[in-house]
Design a protein around this nucleic acid. Sequence first.
DNA 1: AAATATTTTTAAGTAAGCTTAAATTTTTTT
DNA 2: AAAAAAATTTAAGCTTACTTAAAAATATTT
Lengths: 219, 219
Amino acid sequence: MSIAIENFVKAIYKNGKRDNNDTKPGNIAKELGISNAAATDMAQKLASKDLLHYEKYQALKLTDKGNKMALNVVRKHRLWESLLFKLFDMSLHDIHREAELLEHQTSDLLADKISEYLGNPKFDPHGDPIPNANGEITTTDTSMALSQTSEGKKYTISRLMSDDKEFFDFCAQHGLKYGNSLFVSKQFNKNKMTQISINNNTILLNEDFTSIIYVNENH
Amino acid sequence: MSIAIENFVKAIYKNGKRDNNDTKPGNIAKELGISNAAATDMAQKLASKDLLHYEKYQALKLTDKGNKMALNVVRKHRLWESLLFKLFDMSLHDIHREAELLEHQTSDLLADKISEYLGNPKFDPHGDPIPNANGEITTTDTSMALSQTSEGKKYTISRLMSDDKEFFDFCAQHGLKYGNSLFVSKQFNKNKMTQISINNNTILLNEDFTSIIYVNENH
DNA sequence: AAATATTTTTAAGTAAGCTTAAATTTTTTT
DNA sequence: AAAAAAATTTAAGCTTACTTAAAAATATTT
């Protein structure tokens, strides 16, 4: 299957995770940076390949086959991110961009070799779960968005859900990194702003940030 | 530039290394597994992009720009082979196939990171030289084909110039590996067959093999 | 050097993956 | 519930990278 198809199926998978009604052609088109017409076209084509269910004007739903393909690509993406993160001193944003290309040029055999080399990790450097070779995901996710946390408690960063360079630069600068600890000192304005302490610094984060930084409470 | 273009330029580079008159469209077409017509077409297109010199019915010659592009792709290919060879237990043939795809999806930054991680190696696991970031190749190649060697001397394997699975399987089975030593016991039939000792075994190789296994004399 | 074979080129056509523009359907607003 | 806005779909067209078939040029054989 082509790169365009893999990316299309992956986009449906990703959007569907967020919001099940976010998989209409227009939303996928936006995600991929193509026209709505192209997305509709592709959706009809992929329906005929049994990768998704297509009904005019409705949200796109992956078939089992389509879901499996998406998970296979996501697996390769996250394995590459894990490997590059381990071996090289590169920003998470750069690593993400490389993985975005490498994911489509990786045999299942190589993916397994990478996984084995890394000790079959369950999470990538963003904290996102890595599907196994059968497309199964470990989803014992008890984490919450930073915007949902309570004042006066300590948390550990479990996921940084973004591809954005500015975001990662900011995170790197302030020690906001997968696995690091932080303390929530104050929630303002009905949790629209959150004040945290990390590495002996106090920073104030708005909802753009606190909605994509996920944490687990420390016990 | 597209994958098709990178592969086209690389094929001219590779064929040109072997034999300067081996770069007519038909030979490139054979190398790439496309029709002669497609190769002529592409040649004309790449001439207009200043990647090669095209004259009707003549061999294709890369411009400086085209040569640089080819070396950049070759660099990435050989760096990937070196990395995969170091990290994973995979056959040279499989490694070659993965590198064939990865080479086109690798930023210059990532190539530099791989090179640095490996200690800026000058040769890949086949013994082929790795161009540096400026496209310069270390060519202090004093090696000779096994078919050119003399009876009664010891040599070290310096290059295995093939992409063929059967060949690599045979090599792996008999310890014919980059860096290994061997002893040439006999040349038969005007060097058309060569008898060697390696790992306490004696094997007889025909010209198909002795023309692509390169060695340096031990002193 | 003529005849034959091979190679290269041109020409016409195809599939994938896009585009823009217009028509249709759905959704939102009033 | 009608009008306006937004999204989706259809239609027509483009580019890339191929294909096959025929024409033209080059290379080889005799």
